[in-house]
């Protein structure tokens, strides 16, 4: 019985880890008040191949090897802002998710989260809440915040 229970919890954990991002995507896709963009690893690689002249070599390597997927959620209506605010609250209440940074200025409230999803893999999420808009970006892969910063500079 104990073995079966252990197996059951193992399947549950693997499932939760593997499908964490897809779950988030499918949940957000149903919400019509927000714009959802999911970029898979294959799509990222295709984009890198097509635009390799516009991207820094270091950033190309990181985009190809380190990023698994990118999820962008965007809204500029009150219903969508409420939805993304709820998602942020959910992220904050998850004890496994670490709040790396929180910046609150008169224009926006920004929180950066990190969730370990494997031995080396992490999920970085940024939630930006403005007065009449909200944005959330979720990036998964073997990367650090420094890598994200480098890729951003390399793509300018």
């Amino acid at each position: 019985m104990k073995r079966l229970q252990l197996l059951f919890f193992f399947i549950l954990t693997v499932n939760a880890v593997v499908f964490a991002q897809t779950d988030l995507y499918s949940r957000c896709e149903k919400e019509k008040s927000i714009t959802t963009v999911y970029i898979s690893k294959a799509m990222l690689q295709m984009m890198v191949n097509e635009n390799h002249n516009n991207i820094d070599k270091g950033a190309i390597a990181m985009l190809k090897d380190k990023i698994d997927n990118v999820l962008i959620l965007n809204t500029n209506n009150s219903k969508g802002v409420k939805f993304l605010n709820g998602l942020r609250t959910e992220f904050m209440s998850n004890k496994k998710r670490e709040v790396l940074m929180r910046i609150n200025d008169p224009n926006s409230d920004v929180v950066i989260f990190r969730l370990p999803i494997g031995e080396e893999k992490s999920q970085f999420a940024i939630s930006v809440l403005g007065k009449d808009y909200a944005t959330m970006v979720v990036i998964e892969g073997i990367l650090t915040l420094e890598d994200i910063s480098r890729i951003s500079k390399g793509m300018l």
Binding site: M46, V70, T135, V137, S152, M155
Partner: peptide, 15 residues
């Protein structure tokens, strides 16, 4: 995809 990805990383970088 390039634009969206660049925007996503830029949001992080700006923050």
């Amino acid at each position: 995809v390039y634009e969206q990805t660049a925007m996503a990383f830029m949001i992080f970088a700006e923050a």
